[in-house]
Structures are given as C-alpha cells and as structure tokens.
Computed example of a mutant assay.
Amino acid sequence: MAVAKRVRVKICGITRPEDAVAAAKAGADAIGLVFYEPSPRAVTIEQAKLIIKNLPAFVTTTALFVDADPVLIKQVIDEVKIDLLQFHGEETAEFCRQFSRPYIKAVAMQADTDVMQLAEIYKDARALLLDTYKPGVPGGTGEVFNWQWIPKSSMKPIVLAGGLTLENIQRALAIPNVWAMDVSGGVELEKGIKSPQKITDFIQATL
C-alpha cells in the first residue's frame, strides 16, 4: 500500500509569541527565528526565549544566522535552547558542524548552482534549503526562483523557500523531491507580523 507524501512546513521570521502559537495550532512542523540584525524579522535572544516558552511540544525551533560570530551562535544555543541551526551566509561545512546542534544550509539558487555538489560538501547537513538569489539579500526576498533548477533527485532532503504563497503552493507541491516548504512573507500582514488565517490556509493547502 502506497504511503501518502506529507510535505512539512516551517513558518519563518516569527517575531511574536502569538504568531508562534498560531503556527503551531495550524499544524506547522517548525518555526524560524532570525538572528540577523539587518532583517526586519530579526529577534533578540530575550524575544526568542519568550516565543519558545509559549510553544507546545513537537514544534522544531530553528535559529537562522548569516555569517554570524560563533560566540552569538553558542549564546543562542545555550540560552534559547534551540533545536536546529539554519545558515544563510557563506558558512563552510566545517563552520556549520562545529556546534552542538544539527543544521541545514541555505543555497541561493542560480542557473548554474550545483545542488548535488553542495549536498556532498555539506554532507552532514540535515537538509539543503533552496532560496532565491538576490545580490546583498540573504533570504527573505519574497521572490521565486526558477523551480526547474531543482534536481529531480538529491542526496539531501530539499526545503523549498523564496516567494511561497497560497497562490503558488500547488505548483510548488508538484515539484518532485521537495521535503518541506519554508514560508515567511507569504503568510504575513506586514514584515515580521504573521496572519493566523494565512498560516492556516497555507498549511491546509499542503495537506
């Protein structure tokens, strides 16, 4: 008997406890907390602690960094008790694996990006997150890249990010070899402020 595929969903750029709770109640598998000050969705360690304090069990908490100082990363791990690390900069595999948490590596997709090679380089990553390339903007662009660049198979689970919305989720779900969807701007009222209804509608559309 065939087993139905269930695509996982991460709601990224959470800045408020109520948005995290709304994501959990809607069925999100994970939330993302951005520790990158230039981002309009950035949180402090104290904000992150309050957000996680309100989360129910079985929701993975993810900390996003962009070429961060290892001291900050270790502080977040120690104080926030985060589950998973997400690296969005030029971090090497050696850098990513030095911490006491599993990690995923974001890839800024271009026509010549070799996802298979990156899967080998970051061979201990739990997944590769494929996002839209935009010079000087490490994620959160709200723009979609060419999904035809996604390989039909990969040594690593693929997380799709970049411009996902309720309007294009069905097309995204038709892409083979995608393990999870990572959405932020597509479920917001404004940058950093999520819409519980949009979160619910988005997750329901993936089922």
Rank of each mutant, 00 (worst) to 15 (best):
Q117C: 11
Y133D: 07
D69C: 13
L84F: 13
G27Q: 02
L85I: 05
S153E: 15
R97E: 10
I121S: 06
G142R: 07
A68D: 08
W147F: 13
A125M: 07
L50S: 15
I51K: 05
L118T: 12
L129F: 08
K25I: 06
Q110N: 03
D83F: 01
P40C: 01
K134A: 09
A28G: 10
I73Q: 06
I121P: 11
K53Y: 04
L84M: 15
P40R: 00
D83A: 00
L84Y: 06
L129K: 01
K81Y: 12
Y36E: 03
V66H: 00
C96M: 14
A106F: 07
I150E: 03
H88P: 05
K156A: 12
E120V: 09
Q148Y: 09
A111Q: 10
I45L: 04
L118N: 13
S100F: 08
E37G: 01
L33D: 01
K152N: 09
D124A: 04
G89P: 03
G142F: 00
E120W: 10
T141N: 00
L55H: 03
F145S: 04
P38I: 09
P138E: 00
G142A: 00
T44K: 10
Y36Q: 10
D83E: 13
D131Y: 08
S100K: 14
Q117T: 15
L72K: 11
G136A: 08
D29W: 13
E79P: 00
K152I: 06
Y122P: 03
V137A: 09
D78W: 05
L85Q: 13
F95A: 11
I121G: 07
A57M: 09
G136V: 05
V107T: 11
D124M: 03
I52F: 10
D78G: 12
P151A: 04
N146F: 07
A26G: 09
A93E: 14
D67Q: 13
M109G: 07
A127S: 06
L72N: 10
E79V: 02
V71R: 12
G140Q: 05
A30V: 00
M109R: 10
I77N: 11
K25H: 14
V71K: 13
E46G: 01
A68I: 00
K134H: 14
D29N: 09
K156I: 02
S39E: 06
F87D: 01
G140L: 05
A57G: 10
K53M: 01
R101A: 12
A111Y: 06
A30E: 04
Y103A: 05
K53D: 12
L130H: 02
K74H: 14
G142M: 00
A68S: 11
Y36W: 15
D67K: 10
D83Q: 02
I45G: 05
F99L: 03
F145C: 11
P135W: 00
K74S: 15
